[in-house]
Write a protein that binds this DNA or RNA. Sequence first.
DNA 1: AACAAAATAGCACGATCGTTCGTTCGGTAA
DNA 2: TTACCGAACGAACGATCGTGCTATTTTGTT
Lengths: 196, 196
Amino acid sequence: MIGKAANTREAILQRAVDLASREGLEGLTIGRLASDLKMSKSGLFAHFGSKQDLQLATVEAAAKRFLEAVIMPAQSAPEGAARLRAYCERYLNCLQGGLFPGGCFWAAAAAEFDDRPGPVRDAVKAAVAAWLGELERQAAVAGLDAPADFAFEIYAIGLGANACSRLLDDRGGFERARAAIERRLASVSPPAPAPA
Amino acid sequence: MIGKAANTREAILQRAVDLASREGLEGLTIGRLASDLKMSKSGLFAHFGSKQDLQLATVEAAAKRFLEAVIMPAQSAPEGAARLRAYCERYLNCLQGGLFPGGCFWAAAAAEFDDRPGPVRDAVKAAVAAWLGELERQAAVAGLDAPADFAFEIYAIGLGANACSRLLDDRGGFERARAAIERRLASVSPPAPAPA
DNA sequence: AACAAAATAGCACGATCGTTCGTTCGGTAA
DNA sequence: TTACCGAACGAACGATCGTGCTATTTTGTT
């Protein structure tokens, strides 16, 4: 046993990601988080030292959750169009399945911190840029003629689907997103065959 | 003259829209707003009666600003593809030109309130739905085969361009957005001729 | 110029924010 | 058993939040 602090910290961060996806990284309050976890404010606070450090750790935990739910499971698909399909399908499934209970963490964090310079913004920006970069890389492998344009559109469609379902209560946005993505991929790779 | 309160209220709301586009509708604080305008908190507060009413009035003022900068000027273009082009061009120009100094007010408000039931969320939702509805209507007039899908994509691309420029500091997102939109419109209507 | 009404300021309240401090508890090592 | 150390706690700090009250100033009407 190397210390139970790590476990506690992990539990705090999982809850923090959930809370932040609903209330935002700023609306994520130490008192609220502590009472949710039945801890004292000060006991929780001691794990981080400042609210900004808590926010940074929360962003990191959200990135890990996204990585494990979307990126890693898709690594079994061959690079290129197939992996792009795996990424998009998993991303949309995660939105629908509630990977983040308050809607896409990154959409919320991006909107909240895009105008607040500082380490938190930098961390969010790095995570989103990595996602866009990976999309672009796979698009290049797939042979799309403008990989950066494609990555932009995929990213935008994800934002749209998230907003559609969360704000407008229109779950149909997911299907529209799937169709829009498939429309672009079909030009370089035929759609996956229907299961037997 | 029926009272100068209306003028003061208007000045407050203009500043409130600016502030909310940067800090969010919740980060929009009465004290901050008052000191920005060199007013007392209570003097400002008296115009609204509650923070929620201030937020609702701010949403309304943002809708008016958007209407006057994007919707109304485009009414001179004939309905259909031409008006869609006018909408999109004006929307993107407004993002670039700083109609809202903190990036698209609606993108920020949508992300912030999509999980907070209440009158503010309803107002934001209504405004976004109206924008989407108008896009869909014009897409139908233009003869696109799936107007709702088109409206969704336009909306998503707007969100993407906003995030791209605000979070990623990539102004190129605007050009990508223009290209993506034109790609869809070109199928039913040739691009506008280059000026002589 | 006097007066009523409207608009703004001043002040204080309870609550909550992030943060600090001193203390207590539980487990490990000597 | 005793000494110790990391983890969590409870109380409190100053600041700021939204929100009431009561003056005071400004405005429009006579």
